[in-house]
Design a protein around this nucleic acid. Structure first.
Lengths: 187, 187
DNA sequence: CCCTGAATGTTAGTCACTAACATGCGGTGG
DNA sequence: CCACCGCATGTTAGTGACTAACATTCAGGG
């Protein structure tokens, strides 16, 4: 049954799809929110109701609280960066290789737009704080925990951007590269 | 002699000082560029001539190309993250402990404003790219170099923000903490 | 068939930022 | 001493992202 909530979900999806097309054709900055709304057959207000910022048409909502839990489950004897890295390694191993159809298109737009790279970093802040909190639980100082969490997220984001840009290998391989660099496993 | 260039430098300094005061009193977002310009006795246009974005009233221009050179001078046998960390360690040791009067005020404003944190990360991108380039020269893959450079800069930025927020110890100690976490020297 | 609630539309604004063009200030050469 | 010239600054008018307050339409349930 197509209730009201369903209708909202469909216009939301339509907005994201139209935005993606327009961004690829004319670039992110050159595309105005009015154009996107018009392409989706909707008013500008409706766009902003579904996506509070233009950035989120590309980045979406990336916070996954499961990662922090897995980090907290790692042995507390490890130094914080290794602990965070090990947590993501096992968390990633549990998931199936995700859909990478639209992801690559999206990340490619992000990679070519400085303001979007900044927005993406801002979007990972919730995850960063959660991981830092988990590391403090393992005995790290507040400062060391923040540093390790920031380094981890930055490494993962850099790997994601490189993966989208170079079109080289799977997303999983890129993630593992990031973790290997953090662990010093790079001969 | 106060030539024209001197006059420009003085209005620039006046703008930055007035902005800092207003940001501390009312917050970054609540302060408008018109207010800052008025406080400095200048038109809004002049503000934007000196600081192309409102962000740069706080962040300034942080790119220091010397860091990348020192990184390139580290032995190529090390894994990329350790190499980058060692480079910053020696580069930092060469400098005297810098002025931290306005720095702490500025960074504290950054720390309390999400959009400014993002802008700060964006401002380190030039340094990040330079370090990544130096690491590639040492034999790292392009992807690993980008990951290591991103992790390094994120760790340093996180340490800087924590230092400003917690008011704990010197800036040099915070930087060393970041490098120690990256090297795994954290018992 | 109306009624209720959610989704959407309209209008009028604010704020960061830009472009094109006009003015004023200061030092320099005649 | 004055006219000139280069640079800093001012004015005006605009764009684009985003918000608030209020009106409207749409879908299903009593």
């Amino acid at each position: 049954m197509r209730n009201a909530t369903d209708r909202a979900a469909r216009t939301r999806a339509r907005l994201a799809a139209c935005a993606l097309d327009l961004f690829e054709q004319h670039g992110f900055e050159a595309t105005t929110t009015v154009q996107i709304a018009a392409a989706a057959g909707v008013s500008e207000m409706t766009l902003f109701r579904h996506f509070p910022t233009k950035d989120q048409l590309v980045t979406g909502d990336p916070y996954d609280p499961a990662i922090a839990e897995v980090v907290a489950a790692q042995p507390a004897s490890m130094p914080p960066l290794a602990r965070a890295s090990a947590g993501v390694r096992t968390a990633w191993a549990r998931l199936p290789e995700p859909e990478t159809g639209d992801v690559r298109r999206r990340v490619r737009i992000v990679a070519s737009t400085p303001s979007l790279i900044a927005a993406m970093h801002a979007g990972t802040r919730a995850t960063e704080d959660a991981i830092a909190h988990a590391l403090i639980g393992g005995g790290a100082s507040g400062r060391d925990a923040r540093i390790a969490a920031a380094a981890l997220l930055a490494a993962l984001t850099a790997a994601l951007l490189d993966w989208a840009e170079t079109d080289d290998g799977t997303l999983g391989e890129a993630i593992v590269s990031a973790l290997d660099v953090l662990d010093g496993d790079t001969p």
